[in-house]
């Protein structure tokens, strides 16, 4: 069913919180995402022409880099982009087959590769570019929030997190329930002023981004403390100091 589930009050909204202050742009999340998902339940994530010029492939996570602002106030920001598991995902409602759906129990947006006809309309409907067509299989693929990890009872509990979150060396990615105002991720969003991408689109993303922290304002340069007259032990130097201080 591509109609959206009725939002139950207090329902889980699993998603990511991405810290643009600490992301160092190493692409580890993108690589580990590709690695997990090319062997996970949406496998494979094909590469086209992988060993020649024009190599490209399907990735669920792509890391951009931007400059914002000018001069001293300017910042370089690394910016991972993936599916935001929106609350109003038109990518789901436009799907003619029912292959795209949003789960009522946790809000994850998924594609069923068994019923997708590869029409591509959902990719047009996503403002964020989160869906990529597997041109080998002829079906649309996208981030699953590692649904085959987070509920996977065959792996140790500490590893039941999305691959991108586990691998991030800067701890810039956090996973949790954004529907619960007391969860660690919700608190993080409150404390750091987490925000939505392109709110004007009205898709109400679940994933939030934390802005780069404000740069500490540089004060006056530190002054070298001048010795006070009584601290000068040598009588000759004390006399020179007195003369020069007049």
């Amino acid at each position: 069913m591509t109609s959206l589930p009725d939002p139950a009050p207090g329902a889980k909204k699993l998603g990511l919180v991405i810290d643009l202050d600490t992301c160092v742009g190493c692409h580890a999340c993108a690589v580990n995402c590709k690695e997990w998902n090319t062997s996970g339940h949406l496998a494979p994530l094909p590469d086209f022409n992988p060993y020649a010029a024009g190599a490209e492939g399907v990735w669920f996570n792509r890391v951009h880099a931007y400059e914002a602002g000018e001069g001293e106030a300017g910042r370089t920001v690394h910016f991972p982009r993936s599916c935001l598991h929106c609350e109003q995902p038109a990518c789901v409602t436009v799907c003619p087959t029912g292959a795209s759906y949003k789960r009522a129990e946790d809000g994850i947006v998924l594609v069923n590769p068994e019923t997708c006809i590869g029409c591509g309309l959902c990719a047009w409907a996503c403002p964020y570019g989160a869906r990529e067509l597997d041109e080998d299989a002829g079906v649309m693929k996208k981030c699953t929030l590692c649904i085959d990890r987070i509920y996977n009872e065959t792996i140790p509990e500490a590893q039941r997190q999305p691959a991108c979150v586990l691998t991030c060396p800067a701890r810039a990615r956090h996973f949790g329930d954004l529907g619960d105002p007391e969860s660690a991720v919700s608190r993080l969003v409150r404390e750091r002023g987490g925000y939505d991408l392109m709110p004007e689109m009205g898709y109400r993303p679940v994933n939030k981004y934390l802005p780069p922290r404000r740069r500490a304002v540089a004060g006056a340069p530190p002054q070298e403390a001048a010795p006070r007259a009584e601290e000068i032990a040598n009588p000759l130097l004390r006399w020179v100091d007195r003369v020069l201080s007049r």
């Binding site: 914002a68 300017g74 392109m198 709110p199 004007e200 981004y209 802005p211």
Partner: peptide
Amino acid sequence: SATGLGVIGT
């Protein structure tokens, strides 16, 4: 608005 970095500048 796509990046939310407008608060810093262009």
